[in-house]
Design a protein around this nucleic acid. Sequence first.
DNA 1: TGAGAGCTCTGCAACGATGCAGACATCATG
DNA 2: CATGATGTCTGCATCGTTGCAGAGCTCTCA
Lengths: 337, 337
Amino acid sequence: MAGPTLRDVAKRANVSIRTVSNVVNGYAPVSEELRARVQAALDELDYRPNLIARNLKQGRTGMIALVVPELDVPYFAELAREVITAARARGYVVMIDQTDGDGERERELLGRDSRATMFDGLLLSPLTVSAEELRARGNRVPIVLLGEHIFNGSFHHVAIDNVAAAREATGHLLGLGRRRVAAIGDQPYATGETAQLRTAGYRQAHARAGVEVDERLIVPTPHFHRRLGAEAMESLLALPEPPDAVFCYNDLLALGAIRALIRAGRRVPDDVAVVGVDDIEEGQYSTPSLTTIAPDKGEIARQAVNTLLATINGEATAPAEIVVPHRLIVRESTGGS
Amino acid sequence: MAGPTLRDVAKRANVSIRTVSNVVNGYAPVSEELRARVQAALDELDYRPNLIARNLKQGRTGMIALVVPELDVPYFAELAREVITAARARGYVVMIDQTDGDGERERELLGRDSRATMFDGLLLSPLTVSAEELRARGNRVPIVLLGEHIFNGSFHHVAIDNVAAAREATGHLLGLGRRRVAAIGDQPYATGETAQLRTAGYRQAHARAGVEVDERLIVPTPHFHRRLGAEAMESLLALPEPPDAVFCYNDLLALGAIRALIRAGRRVPDDVAVVGVDDIEEGQYSTPSLTTIAPDKGEIARQAVNTLLATINGEATAPAEIVVPHRLIVRESTGGS
DNA sequence: TGAGAGCTCTGCAACGATGCAGACATCATG
DNA sequence: CATGATGTCTGCATCGTTGCAGAGCTCTCA
């Protein structure tokens, strides 16, 4: 199983190990004749450098890890794709792990036996671990946080402006003349910071439009999955005065809500207009297609990777909140095309 | 940036490096008193083992790589999730890379400078690389293939019985009384082996039902994406005698086709019934929900990981075709619920 | 001709960990 | 008391690579 080493090649070509290494890496000048001889030996033995040894010597692996709650949530899958692409452009590969939103799993990462030391850096999209914990665990590996708003000056953090995004989404619905706009996805507890920012934006939009918020229209959900969106929608439809529009905190909730609406015989957008967040590909092809807040995922990935690599390379900058642009895409679920 | 090493800890605790290593790993017996002293030093310095060094010494990394065409294709995302879970259960972590269906990228993996040597094994879902190439490149890393049918005795290969699956899907539509059943997704060229197997199953079902195949109803698509499904459906609707049912070679094609049907004012399943393959979560929540062939993804992942680890551990078995079960799930798009 | 410069090439040490063999002390046994 | 067994602990070599310093040779030019 173990392949040939520099030693084997050196022996075959009758040169020093060091010279073979030089040929492989093109470091030092090597005469044409010797180079040819070494190259022949390399080819004959089909030598492959042992990257682990190289990494040990050089103190870096060329790998970063991306840790997300769930890889089969389309938003994370699409983001992962962008991260892989951005990392490859910089010569890095990406290890992906998922935590299932399980705090234990997230904490494992910071533990003593974590494999985190195998990576040059970590991109982390934490659900339950707080920034304080992260800092306390004092992992020596550079970290950049994604999405969740737990910025407190300790880490770089890349995200869209969640308040503005929610304000625009809600404002769009109010601008259509809807007056009973529901919100699905609030998380009024410690680890639900992103959700809370969106609720704040939802309230701001109402305030600006001079419309009073009916607190019964704000439905919290512990996760952002289709099923919970459908259930939340069903409970909203059971209200004496059901909503005529819904702002869902992500696209999956929105798609679940739409499913529930159609099952209940409501028309979308005629009876109830729906907006989501994330712009997952599915929303372009659903029936009706989904109006959504589209974060620039490519930019999120590039910013995150660039910031992480800068930290890795010691071009340290103070931890910062990096805001990435987003835009509202109007599709059929609110009357667009 | 560099953390403390065994040497640092040893110096602090006034013991040998070897003893610290023993404490860390619990290998050899160490007296209570010494253990406590070493442990204290470990804690004070917040020692983390350097996994790269450990890996170099032990000749394995505890990492496997999963290479898929596109991570944001739901099937692959869901499969990736299962693979990560299965690998974790066996103490392995998973590096994920995507090739974008680009032959170059796939071939890079086998090239001299590939990072493949950093992994104990490779799970590969190739689109364009043939088994011959794989074998010729003679990568020393154990490989298990996923999904594509390019088995030729050189590699382990995990997949469902594609012919049977397609036969069942098509048979289901014929069993509903449909007589003009289209097929979307054929790939009648060298690297489209899976698609060809499904086409074979499609023909078998027709033969068994005594229905003649109208060749114009078989629409090839170079990829399995929503957009191509929609376009294929549009071309089918433009036929003088459009189909009354469609078997799509994956769920994304099916969802695209449904989208096109609804836009064209056709009812699903009343006018046209639709079946897909993959059972991605989206199909449960789409409108209408999607009838599909559901491969047992968890089992695919477990079989693939187990086979790969067996190979890694030298429990070599002859390369084999490992068939994983699938089943037809009837939902609204063919009249189910 | 000899010193210096320049070009190739080499050996040694090191990255941080673990495998192995053995040193040393202690204890039980005949 | 000698012997061997047992239990702790240590030093050396090693994994496969690269950094560093320098060896040996050729060539130039005074």
